[in-house]
Structures are given as structure tokens and as C-alpha cells.
Design a protein around this nucleic acid. Structure first.
Lengths: 219, 219
DNA sequence: TAGATTGTTAATCGATTAACAATC
DNA sequence: TAGATTGTTAATCGATTAACAATC
């Protein structure tokens, strides 16, 4: 079945919300409660979940533990994913130091960089090794790496993405400000510069509205 | 006029693409060319641009310099925005060291942290000072800060967001995995954990398709 | 004029939502 | 049984796209 793109995004949010509710000591929830927390319509949540099965009980709602497990299966985080980061810079280091990702099933186990001064160094608190690009293929096989994070400048991103696909990587998290056009891997973009610009765009729109309503007040 | 949310996102992409084309020495472009680069339909690009004005010339396309300027006005990056980062951790440091943002009009000029051991320290290559939370109001006024980046743990995010709004911040870039519910500021979420999960979800869907088509081959 | 490409309208497509029967 | 809440259908809403007149 074809899953609408917005649904894929929201499923991850549901999973997090369910985990939060569990950590608060709750044992059941409803589409109503999830909707309040995530600012979504209950009917949308029920519809989204229905793409993947029937997880609730009519009259009583959802068992949180069951739902969390079901969502983990849907999101494929019922296993640990080994992740490499190409580009041993600031973003890569920040990711490596972030404990949350490991907890959620994403284990960063290798860096790759073409800068010889970085090769052999250990990155971050966990001391993750930086390998040369020439070892990409070997290490991906040896360490069973399935996900590649692209944290290099835009100019190198396309090249790196092709190298990753060539060695069998099937999923790429792309921090570079470049549209990658690959057919053999799934790509998810994290584009901070675009987020900044979207933010100031929306601030501009709101400012205009504020001015308009002020104007009306004065009439 | 109400601008659809997907349009706000794409406008930032158009701006970047136009800048790239200019840096390649080109002087004009077309909705066709932009569409190829960004993997979008030319008609969508023309429609999106039409929300903000008429930027092209029939028969010849768009003048790149003109279009870039127009898009900078739309995105409100015809000025420099002063930005503070709350949370002097790894993500904040990565942002502070990233030269691209300053180039695009976002100037990170202050850190805030409640951890006393970090206060007074200088962060990153540019040595940006860390202030205590108690100075938030003063510094925001003094340094004309208009945007706040939330780079604290989820548990503190809501609190920090309310403090930011209270001192007059009108735009928030939120890296914390929490849904913020503010009405007095625009919020843009950067949610890396959700991106990871969306990625593995899509990888799972594709794997299923691969298996199905393999299965068919064998019949 | 002929060719190209825009801006805009109308048609299509897809996502969201309300409503409700099913059922705990 | 009465109350609650699901899963699902059908209606609504909104975004994308094709088509084309306008015009460079």
C-alpha cells in the first residue's frame, strides 16, 4: 500500500508521544489525548494508524506498551541500525555526542573523512574513529553499516552520496544543502538553512498581519 | 493572502538554487531549469512564485539577479537577523561554527545557559559569549536579538520557549524534540530524531517492495 | 512573424476531517 | 444497558498539475 508522505513523518511523532506518556506512568491513551499533545485532529491520528493495522480497542483507546511496540515495528526501530557519518566536522561531532540517537536504535560507529589530518582521530565523548574514504567499502561491510549521514559541504555531497550507494548503503540522512537525486537509496534531508529562511519568511508574513490589524484598530 | 505551508518551504529552496546558478556564472533561468534542479514541476514553481509577484519575462524566463533579490525580500533576508542560542551544547556549537548562516543573514551573537560552569565561556571559533539566563531580557534588548534557537533538552524546552516569548522574541528555531504551543511567536522545528525514524520507515517500505518484486521474478 | 516561456485558470489529484456504525 | 472510543467511509478541503492565452 502507498503511504502518504505526511503520514511517514507523523508516525515518528506518535511514537515519541507514546514513549513520553509511558514515561509519565500512564498505561493507556486515546486519539483525543495524542491529538491534544501533538496539536492534531484525533480523526487524523486514527486514520494514520489505520494504514498499519488496528492498534486500539473501541471504547477504551490504546494500550501504550502495545502501541509503542507496534510503532517501533512500523518505524523499523525494533533493531539497532549501524550508522556512519561522512564528514568529521561540527555537525558530525554534535550527532556523535548525542546520547538520544543510540537510545532510539541508531548507533554511530564510524566517521569517514577525506582530510588526512582527521584520519585516525577519535571524535566526541565516545571516541569514534575517523577512517579514510578509501576504507568506506571495507568498513561498511565489516561493521554492518546500513545508514550513512552526509555532513560534508554542498560541493562534495553528490559525490559522497554516490560513493555511499555504491558500497550498498540504502538510507542517507543528508545535512548538506543539496538536492540529491538517487534512486537506489532513501534520502531524508535535514536542512537547517532552509529552516532559518522558512522561519523569517513566516515572521515576515505575521508582521504584515500585525500591521494590518493595528491599522484597522486606528480606524 | 494566505500562503500554503509547502510554498513557504519551497521558496527557500528556490532562493538557494538561484544563488547556485548565479555562482555558476549564469544570468538567466527558467521554471524548466529550476524544476530539473529541484525535482519539481515547472508549473509548480511558477505557481509558487506567483503568490509574491511577477518575477519573470514571458519568452525569456527569469533574470537571476532580479529573482534572487526578489526572493530575499520575500524571505526577509535583505537584512541581518541577530540570533541567540539557548543551550551551549554540541548542537549550539555546531551552529555557531557554521559560516554559512552568517553569510545568509543570520548572525549568532549570544549563547544563554543555566549551567554556571558554562557562563562566561566563549563558544566556537568565533568565541561567542555564554550569558546566564538571568541576563536574557537585557541582552535581547541590548543586542537587538530577534530570533532564538532552542538547543536544550526536551524537559526544558517549553520553559525556555516561554522565556523567549516573554522577552519579545518573535521567531524560534526549535531543536528540542518537543511540540511547542506558542501563539506569540513563529516556530520552526528541526527534529533530527524524527528524520532518522522517517528514514528507516521509508527504508522498511522499500525493502518490502524489493522483496515483492523479487518474489514476482521467481514466478 | 515564429518560438519560447511566463502567469493564471480550471481540472485533477490527494490529504484532511466529520460523521457514524461497530464494539469494547 | 449506557457511555466511550475506535476504525472506516464519504464529504470537504486544499495543493498540484495541465493547459493555454498573454507576451516577450
Amino acid at each position: 500500500m502507498k503511504i502518504p508522505a505526511p503520514v511517514s513523518k507523523r508516525i515518528a511523532l506518535y511514537h515519541r508521544c507514546v514513549a513520553t506518556l509511558l514515561s509519565e506512568g500512564k498505561s493507556t491513551t486515546s486519539s483525543q489525548e495524542l491529538g491534544e499533545r501533538l496539536v492534531l485532529k484525533p480523526s487524523q491520528i486514527r486514520k494514520d494508524l489505520s494504514y498499519f493495522g488496528e492498534f486500539g480497542k473501541r471504547g477504551t483507546g490504546y494500550d501504550l506498551k502495545d502501541l509503542r511496540l507496534s510503532l517501533e515495528n512500523v518505524l523499523k526501530i525494533n533493531k539497532t541500525w549501524n550508522v556512519c557519518i561522512v564528514g568529521a566536522g561540527n555537525i558530525g561531532t554534535a550527532l556523535a555526542n548525542h546520547k538520544e540517537f543510540l537510545k532510539e536504535g541508531y548507533k554511530i560507529i564510524a566517521f569517514f573523512d577525506r582530510n588526512t589530518s582527521k584520519i585516525g582521530k577519535k571524535i566526541g565523548e565516545k571516541g569514534i574513529l575517523v577512517y579514510p574514504m578509501s576504507e568506506l567499502e571495507d568498513k561498511v561491510r565489516l561493521l554492518k553499516i546500513e545508514i550513512g549521514v552526509i555532513a560534508v559541504p554542498a560541493s562534495e555531497a553528490r559525490n559522497v552520496s554516490e560513493m555511499l550507494v555504491k558500497v550498498g548503503i540504502k538510507g542517507i540522512l543528508n545535512f548538506a544543502p543539496t538536492k540529491l537525486k538517487l534512486t537506489d537509496a532513501e534520502i531524508e534531508d535535514v536542512d537547517i538553512a532552509v529552516s532559518f529562511k522558512t522561519l523569517t519568511f513566516k515572521m515576515g508574513v505575521r508582521e504584515i498581519e500585525r500591521n494590518r490589524s493595528n491599522c484597522k484598530e486606528n480606524n
